[in-house]
Design a protein around this nucleic acid. Structure first.
Length: 598
RNA sequence: GGGCGCGUGGCUUAGCUUGGAUAGAGCAUCGGGUUCCUAACCCGACGGUCGGGGGUUCAAAUCCCCCCGCGCCCGCCA
């Protein structure tokens, strides 16, 4: 029986110990066949995704010509060199041009469980490195509550941060708060007067002002009507412009920033319900106050393609940057001397480059040109570094187009979450008459909010997602409750066994059932998946992994008894514990709340 | 018009970074499973010219070119 003693920690990825012996054997086989192969070439050619009858596969077609043999023949010759097999190799077979290798089941069990038990909550995590990162995400204008369309940014960004941290990259999240633009000024413009004195058109759109309502909803309520009103009221436009000017000169109207803060607090409270928190808020105006924006403009004026327009505006001739614009110039300072969003963003990025090794921006695809423009300006001032952009497509709505508050196609995040939790409560009640209302409420909150987050996370960011209520609220199949249910089942087994914490003694030779072996392989794939996501930002891949792991746990659960098992009981409890631990980590990384019961 | 992205069974989607074996799931439909550890589960069936065409390659959903359709952007707004 192996036992888990917290001695020296094994490396994060069990594969790093499982794979090398097999690669060594393959290299020997190639050498014996007089085929020169470099180790990295072989390693990158190996398919380790696993399949029916193989853990590692190698397609040998690319070497067939050099070897003067057909691929099937070469595969057979190589396999002959691998025999007789010895642990950790279990089998080597040739199949129409492929060399298929399987690992000794007991070796897989031992390496996986040892790594999980000795690293425990650090399984799937790396030791911290010195290279840090900054992830800027969401940064929605603080003009009102979040609708579901804006929240995809937050979910992608937050998941990415969690994964980077697991990968050992110290990551800081920043919310870039726009308090300088016309939108923020519109909020201040309308709320600097009492609702009784609002223009009738706006009052009609915002008839009730309930002081008890959440600040983002209450203060943002007149915003769409104000936006509409300004289109036909130049004098009001001028007042808003005046507010922008005051902010630009460093003398914002009283309560300007405080009111924006209040709205933002409300918005972030909604995001906190789905597990999203920010480390820092960066106020756009602070970049102006610190002189950073002025410094950027000075540098831009000295840039190779700088020029000053007849009216005094400063511009960069961007002909060489191949921007998809009719006129290849970027205005970096208005004729009236005030700054522009893109110029301020240059200052913002310089401040990020000064503090962080990796700078990541999560942006909707409508910001892609902005990112290109930003890159062009960074090049102009001789800044070699660039942000990594994670671009996602906006949610669309059955009526067509993006969610829009103005067109009435927006769905408030708070409303969606409330409805999800309400439905979850019904589902829990249906199944659990033994729980108190408080317990049911807790589970329902976790199930409902997780379902919404998972629904948005599971699709690749570059894919447009069509929002439908029924689908966002679905608790079936590829949805968060499926994952939470598997975790709750595992937790329940361990609770009944009275074995909720390590140590877990086990005999790796007893975990040879196909479903046990499949489960072990899912568990040991976690670190590799974390590494992949941290490298590529494909956060949805982790949502898929969590589902696969839960799926395989369910199959195992149905295939073999645990508590009522005979001699294998202890080993299976250990496997359940490892699966639960891996699943908990996976769920935490994607922001789905793991539940002990449901 | 230019640029970027997307197009995979009835619906929603994975796989595309790094080409490799029979394209993997969920929903829906149909058929099974609970004297046993949570049935929000499991097993099975049905269903695919991977938008169209061409190219590269021993091999293309994956790489290249053209076309079609959809979305987004092209402001001294943010």
């Amino acid at each position: 029986m192996n036992s888990s003693s917290p001695s020296s920690r094994p490396p994060p990825d069990p594969w790093s110990r499982l794979a090398p012996p097999l690669v060594d054997r393959l290299l020997e086989a190639f050498r014996a066949e007089s085929l020169p192969v470099e180790r990295p070439v072989l390693e990158s050619a190996l398919d380790r995704t696993g399949g029916e009858g193989w853990d590692l596969a190698l397609a040998v077609h690319r070497w067939a010509r050099t070897a003067g043999r057909t691929p099937p023949r070469l595969a057979e010759d190589l396999v002959a060199r691998l025999r007789p097999v010895a642990p950790p190799l279990r089998s080597a077979d040739a199949a129409h041009g492929y060399v298929n290798l399987t690992l000794e089941p007991a070796t897989v069990a031992r390496e996986t469980l040892e790594t999980v038990f000795q690293r425990w909550e650090r399984y799937g995590h790396w030791e911290p490195s010195s290279a840090n990162a900054c992830v800027e995400h969401t940064s929605a204008n603080p003009t009102g509550a979040f609708h579901v369309g804006r929240v995809r940014n937050a979910i992608i960004g937050d998941t990415l941060v969690r994964v980077l941290r697991a990968r050992g990259i110290p990551a800081v999240t920043q919310y870039y708060v726009d308090d300088m633009g016309r939108q923020a000024a519109m909020i201040t413009w309308i709320w600097s007067r009492s609702p009784e004195s609002w223009p009738p058109e706006i009052r009609a759109e915002a008839p009730t002002v309930d002081p008890a309502e959440k600040a983002d909803r209450r203060l943002g309520r007149p915003y769409p009507a104000v936006s509409e009103y300004l289109k036909s009221h130049p004098e009001a436009q001028a007042e808003v412009a005046a507010i922008v000017q005051e902010v630009e000169r460093g003398h914002p109207p009283p309560d300007h920033r405080a009111r924006i803060s209040e709205i933002l607090d409300g918005m972030l409270a909604s995001l906190a319900r789905i597990g999203i928190r920010f480390d820092e808020r960066v106020w756009e105006s602070s970049l102006l106050e610190s002189g950073a924006v002025g410094a950027v403009i000075d540098r831009l004026l000295k840039a190779p393609h700088a020029r000053v327009e007849a009216n005094g505006a400063a511009a960069i001739d961007a002909t060489g940057y191949r921007l998809p614009k009719e006129e290849a110039k970027i205005i970096v300072r208005r004729a009236d001397g005030t700054s522009l969003y893109v110029t301020r963003d240059v200052a913002y990025h310089l401040s990020k480059f000064a503090r962080f090794e990796r700078v990541i921006d999560v942006l909707g695809q409508d910001h892609r040109l902005h990112a290109q423009t930003l890159d062009a300006l960074l090049a102009e001032i001789g800044e070699p570094r660039r942000a990594e952009y994670v671009i996602y497509q906006d949610l669309t709505v059955p009526e067509g187009g993006r969610m829009s508050t103005r067109r009435g196609t927006g769905v408030w995040l708070d409303d969606l979450l409330d409805e999800a939790v309400r439905r979850a409560r019904e589902e829990v009640r249906k199944r659990r008459d033994d729980l108190s209302d408080a317990e049911i409420g807790g589970i329902a909150e976790a199930v409902g909010t997780s379902a919404v987050r998972y629904h948005i996370l599971r699709v690749a960011p570059e894919k447009a997602v069509l929002f439908r209520w029924e689908e966002a609220l679905s608790f079936e199949g590829r949805a968060a409750p499926f994952l939470q249910y598997a975790h709750a089942r595992a937790a329940s087994l361990l609770r009944k066994a009275g074995r909720e914490e390590p140590p877990y003694p086990y005999d790796p030779a007893q975990l040879v059932h196909p479903e046990e072996q499949a489960l072990l392989r899912r568990i040991l794939a976690l670190p590799g998946r974390v590494e992949y996501v941290a490298r590529t930002s494909h956060v949805h891949a982790l949502a898929g992994y969590a589902h696969d792991l839960a799926d395989q746990f369910n199959r195992f659960y149905h295939a073999v008894p645990v508590l009522t098992a005979g001699p294998e009981r202890e080993s299976r409890i250990a496997l359940v514990a490892a699966a639960r631990r891996a699943l908990e980590t996976a769920l935490e990384l994607i922001g789905v709340t793991p539940l002990g019961t449901m």
